[in-house]
Write a protein that binds this DNA or RNA. Structure first.
Length: 223
DNA sequence: CCAGACGTTGTT
DNA sequence: GTCTGG
DNA sequence: CCAGACGTTGTT
DNA sequence: GTCTGG
């Protein structure tokens, strides 16, 4: 998966959706997110469940080099997330849910790329399986919280556009995910009729475009 | 990942 | 082509 | 037991 | 933080 998450979700929608794991608090709408910019992360902390904005791109707590030398960690592969040094610690003890109204995938060749918007057919927000970490800058000692989205195989329907897709907890068990259970069974693709899709403007991936513009997911040219 | 920008010369 | 911003 | 290592994702 | 090597 690549691109950004888009469109707003209402408090009511998220709360209803997240009721799988219990009541949610402090939820804020967010439309559209790019790597290295914050995403909303629902985690289980000492104070209970909280929605926290974090850097998109997980930084393992043991990372000692400058942030700029960190490889791309905005996605983690479901197949290897348990073993990769970059993710395994968070996979064990810092799972989270990343609410989003939808996500983008691109089709076409360079110079003729077409962005598609994907969201739940029932209109409810999606909840991606994620991981988070807290890292402390060796120089400034500043703490930085970060997160990543787990991606797995696409289902047949999705394969028409892309062979990967985020792990969506709506069709797994969000509660079990947060409890650290049955990862293999949890990280399955959703039913074939779970999502809907339409073409949007390439504007979605343009630098300088605000993340909170609902117009980003307006249908574009016909397919 | 993708979209968009990317400007040089002389000058003590 | 390569780098930056999101 | 301790010391030291440990890089990911996407590629039309 | 977690795993491996010694």
């Amino acid at each position: 998966m690549c691109g950004r998450f888009t469109q707003s979700y209402t408090w009511a929608e998220v709360e209803r959706f997240l009721s799988v794991v219990g009541p949610a608090r402090n939820l804020r709408p967010r439309y559209n997110i790019a790597p290295t910019t914050p995403i909303d992360v629902l985690r289980l902390g000492k104070a209970g469940r909280e929605l926290v904005p974090m850097r998109w791109g997980l930084v393992p707590s043991w990372w000692k080099k400058p942030l700029g030398e960190l490889p791309s960690t905005f996605n983690a592969r479901a197949e290897t997330v348990a073993e990769k040094p970059m993710f395994r610690s968070a996979f064990k003890s810092r799972r989270c849910i990343i609410p989003a109204s939808g996500f983008y995938e691109w089709t076409g060749k360079p110079g003729a790329k077409t962005p598609h918007y994907f969201s739940a057919r029932d209109g409810r927000p999606l909840a991606f399986a994620g991981l988070w970490e807290c890292w402390r800058d060796p120089e400034t000692k500043e703490p930085l919280e970060s997160a990543t989205v787990i991606v797995g195989s696409a289902n047949e329907w999705m394969r028409a556009f892309h062979d990967r897709m985020p792990v969506i907890l709506a069709w797994c068990d969000a509660g079990a995910w947060m409890a650290g259970e049955n990862p293999a069974e949890l990280l399955q693709p959703p039913p074939e009729d779970a999502l809907q899709e339409w073409i949007v403007s390439p504007r979605v991936n343009r630098s300088g475009v605000g993340d909170d513009d609902p117009a980003l997911i307006e249908p574009s040219r016909a397919a």
